[in-house]
Nucleic acid binder design. Structure first.
Lengths: 224, 224
DNA sequence: GACTTACCGACAGAATCCTGTCAGTTGCCG
DNA sequence: CGGCAACTGACAGGATTCTGTCGGTAAGTC
């Protein structure tokens, strides 16, 4: 298994919030304990809040990432105006939060925009931008157990058509991935949402079946 | 020059908005044209909006990145409340923008948060979070030509103290970098803002000097 | 103090990536 | 149609990264 895939699987395993020993993670992923230590170092350096303790093991503190949004100048002004209104409102908690958020937004506004006078922001991640049009449908399909017809271009450029049962959306700080049961391959598959060419409901729905749910996938990761 | 550094320099060169031929970029960076084509493919795959045209050359469409912000649940609610107020206000332009932004934010809210009920967002980029405390001071120093005393840990873990003249902040979708004139080395240097240990005004200021400005640095990149 | 587990650097070998070269195709412009 | 320049795949060689092994330290728990 290539390293990038293993790193993602390690995060998925750790997301259960439980304690894990390196020796167990090594066994699950088929590498040595030394490599797991290197991997953990790599993930921690990359910002994943993993806590390791000698004599104890590893645990993941719950990370939640808000992907960046694209704002037009009007939207940005509306945001500032709205926060101004809340900041001067009667609700003290909301007012303090609005002040705090306004300060944070001011702190991160991009230098290029501020100085170049550009009229619009763009996604910091092109992948998140490309994924955005599909997220709503995917969420609804997951919620309502709808099957979707997917036109997909994988990383080698190969295009395929398939019918999928969407199970779980994940955001990795830059790209969205969709865990789905793929009927073409009769197995779980991960799809980069930004690499979806077309995605439409195909009129079908599915009942969660034993062996084909998120829990089944995670159980597969969890088994020795 | 290692590839990652070359990729950043290519972006810096292309940011002038002018047309560039691969053969010229190759000459500037000391690699073959084939490598420049590979580099361009890599940058485009990574979301940098470079346009290449046969018989013409390369040009960069202006990218602007809004880095993600950290929001507490209260802040997120204040944001939604504020946008709600603006959306129902008299200013039609602001109202439409608020509606639009609210939809965008709803579209990108992370799955984990929405479903897990977590109480806080975190930066999607740990580097951006670590950089945040320094950005305000750096911007002011750039604007007001203040010298700063910098305590810095480089990528090998080595700590140094230096006096710098901040010139330009750049955001690369995950990390902030600061271009400065470094008085210790008497040359331009790039600093990862998230790797700054401490940064304080040292009471000094500087007048822009020939040979030590952003324009001088860019001119150095631009020369054959 | 023993046990448990994280963590590290050094080394050798395997695997992967990068680069330059080469021959070729593709598309824009005049 | 020719000139220009982007763009591609294949190949060989060099550079870099990854991995496992080994001997070791550090820290938490009981």
């Amino acid at each position: 298994m290539p390293r990038p895939d293993r790193l993602l699987d390690l995060i998925r395993i750790l997301r259960d919030g439980k304690l894990h020993r390196a020796v167990d993670l090594a066994e699950k992923t088929g590498v040595s304990v030394r490599t797991i230590w290197r991997d953990m170092g790599r993930l921690q350096a990359g910002g994943v809040p993993i806590e390791g303790e000698r004599g104890i093991g590893y645990m993941l503190r719950d990370p939640v990432a808000l992907p960046p949004v694209a704002l037009s100048r009007d939207e940005f002004e509306a945001l500032r105006l709205g926060l101004g209104l809340v900041a001067s409102g009667a609700d003290q908690t909301a007012a303090r939060a609005a002040v705090s958020l306004r300060a944070k937004i001011a702190a991160v506004a991009p230098t290029i925009l501020a100085e170049a006078g550009s009229d619009s922001f763009v996604f910091s991640s092109a992948e998140a931008a490309r994924a955005a049009p599909h997220l709503g449908l995917i969420r609804r399909a997951i919620r309502e157990h709808l099957t979707l017809s997917l036109s997909y271009r994988d990383e080698t450029g190969t295009e395929t058509q398939r019918r999928i049962r969407p199970l779980q959306l994940e955001f990795w700080g830059k790209v969205w991935t969709l865990l789905a049961w793929c009927e073409l391959r009769a197995d779980f598959r991960f799809f980069r949402v930004d690499m979806i060419i077309a995605l439409v409901p195909d009129g079908g729905a599915f009942m969660p079946e034993p062996g084909r749910t998120v829990e089944d996938y995670l159980a597969r990761l969890a088994e020795p």
